[in-house]
Amino acid sequence: MKENKDTIDKSLKRKHKLQTKDVKVFYDDFMAIKGIDMNIRANKITAFIGPSGCGKSTFLRLFNRMNDYIDGFRMEGEILIDGENIYKKKVNVEQLRKQVGMVFQKPNPFPKSIYENVAYGLKIQGIKDKSYLKDKVEDSLKQVGLWNEVKEDINKSALALSGGQQQRLCIARTLAVEPSIILMDEPTSALDPISTAKIEELIYELKEKYTIVIVTHNMQQAGRISDYTAFFYMGELIEYDKSKKLFTNPEKKQTENYITGRFG
């Protein structure tokens, strides 16, 4: 009987890469997340949608503990990755962030060369082997389809790239440290449509190897690329379902209003 329960737990763990249990977030006295339970599946793309200020970024940034440095931030509840609570005292935050990569809204390459940007995550882990680094940089840039565009300029400043290229560089930089989860906070909102299309395509390819959670305010985008979609409103998870279902036949009135553009 007990054995049986263990195996069920294990398979659930494999399926549910990320779990949150009654998570509440406070900024000083303001409650930004009001008790969310959620399971996010491995090797799928999960989209977070909702009107701005509803807590999408706050919630997303819990998974790599990026909120830790914010003054007045406080969290209650549990967040599990592969069944382990990442807010336990002895958790190594740097190790966690190596495993959970993040791509931000505005491309934010370091003011260094393209090479240094991609090699950064490996170098800070103490890897010095030049040929290994070179291979890894090339490999990562190839994964995001940037290699052919920049292979000549690999030692030039990353700031010279276009916005779309910069964002793909930031994704490559994240891939280089081989995370298992990638968090993306509106990664295309600062980009033109062509760059956006390229990045969407890339995200779609990446889900084979990674669990991806993406915040977007673009419903078409959520519909196009995500397997699951979660709709947030005022710090609460209103509805969470397969994207197809949520966009065509939502259970809740609020969700329907939002996706049909009646508010937000």
């Binding site: 190594n92 740097e94 882990q125």
Partner: peptide, 9 residues
Amino acid sequence: MNNIRKNRI
């Protein structure tokens, strides 16, 4: 892992 611990120290 080892390196990450060293960096922390």
